[in-house]
């Protein structure tokens, strides 16, 4: 499998981090274990480790983001890398410069890693395919396809609270159709062996043939929540509300909002997750978002450790390639 997967280099090492689809259990567990080690770094007063000293990481965000960009920035800094934030939303691409031209310019700045967010599904794959072979590409979210570091921090949060995945019943609520977070979560949960994944939303937010991803589709939240161990909310984008997709915020909350009463249908120790930012009173009631079962802020915190793990693992292998090429063993 690794031979055909563009994420792996010819030595079989994880070189890019583009999607969780196709990564095996061992790879995912390896990232979670590494993140576990980094959480202790984050708890110390001096939070830096010198793993990526002298490396330059560029945040290439073609789409607006504060939270994800900041989390990557912090992760890179704690690994002692230099980080370059390049705002591409308002600059070059608007002037008609092609994505590839932009990449070539950034390549010439001698960066070692690109962290990419782009509104096109497959953009991270495209960039990984076309950058110089020494550069690592990490997907910070591509269109509706994948958000693999979010997926991993979700898995990390679940593992911290629940230990193993095998017996877990996970419910994902809301806009599955347009959500890269949902796709990455589903893919990782399948690989890590979750017992059951349920998705629940009005049919307008469920993509075609989603069952083939290995999930069960529910239309009634109350039914879907029964005996759940993990409940994942998704952000409903503003443009989906008051449209032909969802008639109103009010109706969505009435039918699919996670309230205290509904939460009682899940297991008493169920955790409530959300990638943020939450729409209180739309996907989730304020008292649930702030309640004792919510782990939403923990997710944000773990996001740093997980991204430190992803950056160091992919970059570590990048180093091996560079050394091999310099030694002429190619």
């Amino acid at each position: 499998m690794k031979q055909n997967d563009p994420q792996f280099n010819r030595f079989g090492n994880l070189h890019h981090f583009l999607t969780l689809d196709g990564l095996d259990k061992q790879t995912l567990t390896g990232i979670l274990d590494a993140a576990e080690n980094f959480t202790s770094v984050n708890d110390k007063s001096i939070k830096n480790v010198p793993l990526l000293r002298g490396k330059t990481v560029a945040n290439l965000f073609f789409e607006n983001s504060t939270r994800t960009r900041t989390a990557f920035e912090l992760a890179a800094k704690r690994l002692s890398a230099d980080i370059l934030n390049i705002d591409l939303v308002s600059s070059s691409t608007k002037k008609g410069e092609s994505l590839l031209d932009t990449l070539r310019v950034l390549e010439s700045l001698q960066c070692d890693m690109f962290i990419v967010r782009h509104s096109d599904s497959g953009a991270a794959h495209f960039i990984a395919e076309h950058v110089a072979p020494t550069i690592n590409v990490v997907n910070g979210g591509d269109g509706q396809h994948s958000h693999p570091t979010q997926g991993m921090l979700d898995m990390f949060t679940i593992r911290r609270h629940k230990g193993e995945f095998e017996n877990l019943r996970v419910v994902i609520i809301g806009d599955i159709k347009h959500s890269r977070v949902a796709r990455s979560g589903i893919s990782a949960l399948k690989t890590l062996g979750a017992a059951e994944i349920r998705v629940v939303a009005p049919n307008t937010l469920i993509p075609e043939y989603v069952e083939e991803l290995g999930v069960k589709v529910y239309s009634q939240l109350e039914v879907a929540l029964k005996d759940a161990d993990v409940i994942m909310g998704l952000r409903l984008q503003n443009e989906r509300m008051n449209s032909a997709t969802v008639p109103s915020m009010g109706e969505f909350f009435r039918t699919y909002g996670l309230t205290e009463d509904r939460l009682k249908l899940a297991k008493p120790d169920a955790i409530v997750m959300h990638p943020g930012p939450t729409n209180r009173g739309v996907e989730i009631a304020a008292n649930v978002a702030d309640g004792k079962q919510a782990v939403i802020l923990e997710q944000v915190n773990y996001g740093i450790a997980v991204r430190m793990a992803v950056l160091s693992i992919t970059m570590g292998h990048g180093e091996a390639v560079r050394e091999a090429e310099m030694a002429g063993t190619t």
Binding site: S121, H145, E208
Partner: peptide, 13 residues
């Protein structure tokens, strides 16, 4: 095509 592959790849169908 709005089918299983587009759903997995997150491509508008």
């Amino acid at each position: 095509h709005a089918g299983a592959v587009a759903t997995r790849l997150g491509l508008p169908g």
